[in-house]
């Protein structure tokens, strides 16, 4: 009897790119839930809109490049990019901003560089930076975290109208709805010569790093730890990033606690935790050696601190990630692990 032949191994584990990407999506659910709770329906509307645009763009580009649609649309990578970007957008961002951001991510950053696995830069962060540079005012107009249960929360319909037609409902005062983020407030007021303790007495700062924000960060931390536990994300990257951010912010806080925010504030505010577990861990654009990942993560943490404290933007995760993306191949080259049987040292 004759048989077809194939090379070994003949059995494979149950895994796929789609599974890996879906895990990332599941892990984002707790954090997203907190965001929806504190910032309203806009977060969900952004997610849905970004996902739809991302899948359409992915399909169009795959078709244009002559690639099979089904396997690539089923790998959920476009959805992950869409979610990462959508979570980073202000909840009432006009619809065209989301569309521009997603198209920059999927069309330019991903497919023009060769598609899944070939992009040197994190697509979601390219989309985010394009928007941040082009529309700085809209990008900083975050909602004041209120909670959906409050009487003055926006309804879903009002949210949809705000996003797609523009204009806020008349029952809200313009400054009663949107406001600066805690990182933004800290930055502006430090510039005015106020001390950290004084600034942090403002209610926007909540318990640790901003009411609402710290809950979202905790949600992303829980999901992120699960990603590390399931080995979907490499532990070295969040460890390196949060570790270096903690170390350097502790040093500066120790030098002058009135000019520099405490480490717990830095760790729990902005996109630090979300970035550490969900953005920096994008394997395609990160370093791939174990030691390299620690260095890569640490580099991001350091850059985040420098941008936040001394740069022109309130948060710096997107820029820090993109800068370290450039460095990843070089880091890999110099951090090859010792192979089995090679002399130690």
């Amino acid at each position: 009897m004759r048989f077809r032949t194939m090379t070994s191994p003949h059995v494979l584990g149950a895994t796929s790119v789609g599974l890996v990407m879906r895990r990332v999506l599941y892990a984002m659910v707790p954090g997203i839930t907190a965001l929806v709770w504190f910032f309203g329906w806009g977060v969900l509307v952004n997610l849905v809109l970004a996902t739809a645009v991302a899948l359409l763009a992915e399909a169009a580009l795959l078709a244009a490049r002559g690639k099979p649609l089904a396997p690539h649309l089923n790998d959920y990578s476009a959805v992950v990019t869409a979610w990462l970007l959508a979570v980073a957008l202000p909840p009432l961002a006009p619809w065209w901003m989301t569309v521009i951001g997603v198209l920059s991510a999927i069309v330019v950053a991903k497919h023009l560089y060769g598609g899944l696995g070939y992009n040197p830069f994190n697509p979601a962060m390219i989309g985010y930076v394009v928007l941040l540079v082009s529309f700085p005012r809209e990008m900083s107009a975050w909602l004041i975290p209120h909670g959906l249960d409050r009487p003055h929360a926006m309804t879903l319909l009002e949210t949809l109208r705000a996003i797609f037609a523009g204009g806020l409902p008349e029952r809200f005062a313009p400054d009663g709805l949107t406001g600066a983020t805690p990182l933004d407030v800290l930055r502006t007021k430090l510039g005015l010569g106020l001390g950290v303790t004084e600034i942090r007495n403002s209610p926007v700062f909540g318990m640790v790093a901003g009411s609402g924000w710290e809950w979202a960060a905790s949600g992303f931390l829980a999901g992120g730890l699960w990603l590390v536990y399931t080995r979907t994300a490499a532990w070295q990257i969040p460890a390196g990033m949060l570790g270096s951010l903690a170390v350097i912010s502790t040093i500066f806080y120790g030098i002058d606690p009135q000019r520099y925010a405490p480490p717990w504030f830095h760790l729990w505010s902005g996109a630090a935790i979300f970035g550490a577990f969900f953005i920096a861990t994008d394997p395609v654009t990160a370093s791939t050696t174990p030691r390299g990942r620690l260095i890569y993560g640490a580099g991001i943490g350091l850059l985040v601190y420098l941008i936040r404290s001394f740069g022109g933007y309130p948060d710096g995760v997107a820029f820090a990630v993109l800068l370290m993306n450039i460095a990843a191949p070089t880091i890999d080259l110099y951090t090859q692990p010792r192979v089995f049987g090679a002399r130690r040292g």
Partner: peptide
Amino acid sequence: AELAPEQPVMPCIRCGACADACPAELL
């Protein structure tokens, strides 16, 4: 049932699962 199901080969996403599994400690 015993064999790996035939699946399309996707691009490498550099996830490093292979390096974690490699007993020769290669990349």
